[in-house]
């Protein structure tokens, strides 16, 4: 029934050929990305590049490495903000931090950290709750360019007003301006915030586990994957979490439609905070 529904149109076949080509040539694997949003981003990319068709893009991919780099950025989504979904941080502070206090050393994997705003938000939360010195955050992304922005921790000052509001809603207990220095239209985050952060390249699609973690945060990343790939990544997360480790997903993400639903129990259901069973 489902197969009958998913008869591929000509555009779908072109998309398939393009991502196959990108994978064969460069090893970046978009083959199991969610089809509808992938197609949308490819169409947007064609418009931005002034290309008439996917076939034309195929030719560029073959010849023009710079175009490939732009395509990789165009196919990934980097929407983020400090204290995005503030209620998540409130729940983390109240429900997760007390659990983390029982550990002598806390390893956190922030998978798909994009330009880093949510990593620094977590560092601030951990600092304010007095456990940051015992934490190490491994913040990973597939894209070196966004990771560099994350490492720098410099953001447009114009965003600070919004971030301040979100910080307060997230239960922040200080003045948000303590955390950055304003300079020439930029806000430079205090370097101490990344004292226990390690930024690194990691591709959820093709790379394996690299440590055992007490917490894995992966918010609004898996929505771009189809269910096959989601299950594959959940397998990776499950095997990378310690017993009773904590998994945090995005607001509209759920384990319900995955093969790992029963391996976790909800810790804060509405905030998509789960705890691994033993």
């Amino acid at each position: 029934m489902v197969l009958e529904k998913s008869v591929l149109g000509p555009e779908d076949i072109e998309v398939r050929l393009l991502v196959d080509r990108v994978y064969q040539l460069y090893g970046y694997d978009f083959r199991n990305y969610a089809a509808a949003s992938l197609k949308r981003r490819i169409r947007n990319f064609l418009r931005m590049e002034g290309l008439a068709s996917i076939a034309e893009l195929q030719r560029c991919v073959l010849q023009d490495r710079a175009c490939v780099e732009r395509l990789l950025l165009g196919l990934t989504v980097n929407t983020t903000a400090m204290f995005r979904d503030p209620s998540f941080y409130v729940a983390f502070r109240e429900q997760v931090v007390p659990i983390l206090r029982t550990y002598p050393f806390i390893r956190i994997w922030h998978a798909g950290c994009s330009t880093g705003q949510e990593v620094y938000s977590m560092a601030i939360l951990l600092q304010e709750t007095g456990i940051y010195h015992r934490c190490r955050i491994y913040a990973t992304d597939t894209n070196e360019q966004v990771l560099q922005t994350a490492r720098n921790g410099i953001y447009p000052q114009s965003q600070m007003q919004e971030y301040t509001q979100l910080y307060l809603k997230a239960g922040g207990s200080r003045s948000f301006s303590e955390y950055y220095t304003a300079s020439h239209g930029s806000a430079i985050l205090r370097p101490a915030l990344r004292q226990h952060v390690v930024f690194g390249l990691h591709n959820l699609v093709t790379d394996g586990s690299f440590n055992e973690f007490n917490v894995i945060l992966c918010r609004n990343v898996l929505i771009y994957f189809n269910q096959t790939l989601q299950n594959q990544v959940h397998k990776l997360f499950y095997s990378s979490l310690c017993k009773f480790g904590i998994l945090g997903l995005g607001k509209q993400e759920t384990l319900r439609f995955t093969a790992y639903e029963h391996q976790y129990e909800p810790l804060v259901r509405i905030e998509k905070l789960y705890r691994r069973r033993d």
Binding site: V2, K5, S6, A34, A35, A36, S37, R40, R41, V77, T79, N220, I223, Y224, Q227, K251, Q252
Partner: peptide
């Protein structure tokens, strides 16, 4: 459609995105 997400349709399921 939830607030602040795009709602997309695939055959038989919905998916979401936070694209611009």
């Amino acid at each position: 459609a939830p607030a602040n997400y795009h709602l997309l349709v695939e055959p038989g399921i919905f998916s979401l995105s936070t694209d611009e």
